[in-house]
Computed example of a mutant assay.
Amino acid sequence: MKLLDIGEVAKVSGVSPSALRYYEETGLISPVARRGLRRQYSPDVLLRLNLIIMGKAANFSLDEIAGMFSRDGKPEISRALCSAKALELNEKINDLTALRDTLLHVASCPALSHMDCPTFRRLAGIAGKRHRGQKKRSKRA
Rank of each mutant, 00 (worst) to 15 (best):
M1D: 07
I6M: 03
E8M: 04
A10R: 03
V12N: 00
S13R: 01
V15Y: 00
V15D: 00
S16G: 05
S16K: 01
S18R: 15
A19N: 04
A19T: 09
L20E: 00
L20S: 00
R21S: 01
R21K: 09
R21D: 02
E24S: 05
T26F: 08
G27T: 14
G27V: 09
S30W: 12
S30N: 13
P31R: 02
R34L: 05
R35Q: 10
R35F: 01
L37Q: 15
L37P: 05
Q40V: 04
S42A: 08
P43L: 05
P43K: 09
V45T: 10
V45S: 03
L46M: 06
L47V: 04
L49E: 00
L49N: 01
L51T: 06
L51P: 04
I52E: 00
G55A: 11
G55N: 05
G55K: 08
K56Y: 02
A58C: 13
A58S: 08
N59Y: 02
N59T: 08
F60R: 03
F60C: 00
F60W: 07
F60I: 01
L62P: 01
E64R: 11
M68R: 00
F69D: 03
F69Q: 04
D72R: 15
K74M: 05
K74S: 10
P75L: 05
I77A: 06
S78Y: 09
R79A: 14
L81I: 11
L81D: 15
S83E: 15
S83M: 14
K85D: 02
L87M: 10
L87N: 13
L89E: 10
N90Y: 08
E91T: 06
E91N: 07
E91D: 08
I93C: 04
N94W: 08
N94P: 01
N94D: 09
D95F: 12
L96D: 12
L96G: 10
T97N: 11
T97K: 12
A98I: 04
A98E: 12
R100L: 14
R100H: 14
L103M: 06
L103W: 09
H105P: 07
V106S: 06
A107C: 06
S108D: 03
A111R: 13
S113L: 15
H114S: 06
H114N: 11
H114M: 05
D116N: 14
P118W: 14
T119I: 13
F120G: 04
F120C: 14
R122L: 09
R122Y: 09
R122A: 08
L123Q: 12
A124H: 09
I126G: 06
I126S: 10
I126D: 12
A127I: 06
K129A: 13
R132Y: 14
R132M: 11
Q134W: 14
Q134H: 12
K135W: 02
K135F: 01
K139S: 14
R140E: 15
R140C: 07
R140V: 07
R140L: 13
A141N: 14
